[in-house]
Design a protein around this nucleic acid. Sequence first.
DNA 1: CCGGCCATAGTGGTCCGACCACATCGAAGA
DNA 2: TCTTCGATGTGGTCGGACCACTATGGCCGG
Lengths: 233, 233
Amino acid sequence: MDETAPQKGTVTQRAIEQIKTMIAEGRLEPGQRLPTERDLAVQLGISRSSMREAIRALTVLGVLEARHGSGIYVTQLQAGDLLETFGVVADLSRGPRLVELLEVRRILESTATALAAARITADQLAEVEKHLTAMNATDDPDEILAHDLAFHREIAVAAGNDTMAAILEGLSSRTFRARVWRGYQEEGAFARTRREHAAIHRALAARDPEAARAAAAAHVGEVEEWLRAQLAG
Amino acid sequence: MDETAPQKGTVTQRAIEQIKTMIAEGRLEPGQRLPTERDLAVQLGISRSSMREAIRALTVLGVLEARHGSGIYVTQLQAGDLLETFGVVADLSRGPRLVELLEVRRILESTATALAAARITADQLAEVEKHLTAMNATDDPDEILAHDLAFHREIAVAAGNDTMAAILEGLSSRTFRARVWRGYQEEGAFARTRREHAAIHRALAARDPEAARAAAAAHVGEVEEWLRAQLAG
DNA sequence: CCGGCCATAGTGGTCCGACCACATCGAAGA
DNA sequence: TCTTCGATGTGGTCGGACCACTATGGCCGG
């Protein structure tokens, strides 16, 4: 009888969907400021508590951004904003799924590196070189890891597909990488890693997409195979 | 002075990290039941409201599952659970990022189809055929879309990498696909789509990975090019 | 007239206590 | 023995209060 009561799921879930829909339909533009929590709660006919849960949920998804004392804003909805949560997948995965993640990364990373070889600018190539030399100049594992990440990140950006770069960023999240790399590097894989990085850089400098694809695939594939062997043993 | 007050970020954010850490460190196993919201709040020294926000956030991320009247449980942490949110990226993306998403899908889908050609079982192939014939036997756009999705989902599963399948599932989310497909099919692309699907199936039946890769890449690439042209015009 | 300071209003962040809706399980009954 | 149903405990929702922070604009001193 009551046409104003759809009543599906929790009110919070409903609020999440409604806000998402407002954004998808363009009624809320990126960067725009939303009404206050109190006003939004009244508009959707729910309590402030439930509205806050909905806002919090959309915040962790990278859709909204809450600024204490200022207001709630729609993010720019950039690939990086929305795919930030992708890292939790990598962080909470163990065993066989780690191999699957590396397989996905190998596929994307090799393609991204190939694209980068064709499109990379001189400035970007210089930046890649910087991280390559810095990586080879130190013994601190943390520093090596940081430059390793930056090395691949620069390449992914140079590929020109921000979405792909954001996904690769998640697949290489710091904690994920640290867990796998630690064991890998302990087996004296430093030299091999350096050779592979050098090969990737060489292919980029030569603007050779096929060589770049092969080098990147081999690079990730090495770790993949090592991890596979670890799990089997 | 007070060593018990780290005080970084909001208490809710801290609670989210703490629960995530507990799971990452194995102190909480998949499927396990957590203490009640009230108890958890006491344990972490925060209010029930803040704890609820943290739980809600982890729920939308697919890490936790709240069952009304029963309790809060850790999900199985399957790829599908954690990558469900991937769909929101597709749903909230517009313009150039749609092309980027299709590019990622083309890369992954072509590889997945190639893997499927090598690994697919007779039963799985029969399932693929079922959706192919069903897709060609109806004129209802919604039904076509549903079978189209199922067609590619079966292939992705047959590839043997659940993580990749889950990502592809997100990249083909219903609302995303509906938005792009609508315009694409309006231009009489039905016949072409059928030919491409038939080619993919033929490659799978022939257990020919290279042909499967090419057919899948062409299939997604067609839509990609069409969308690129739409945006340019 | 100008610039920096500061009171104030408004916002998100946190907490509390109450009640409701639902799932579960055991005791009472057929 | 099986079924029923009530008691208990759980997540879901609500309303209000207060705290922490931002931003604004007027005031004061220069």
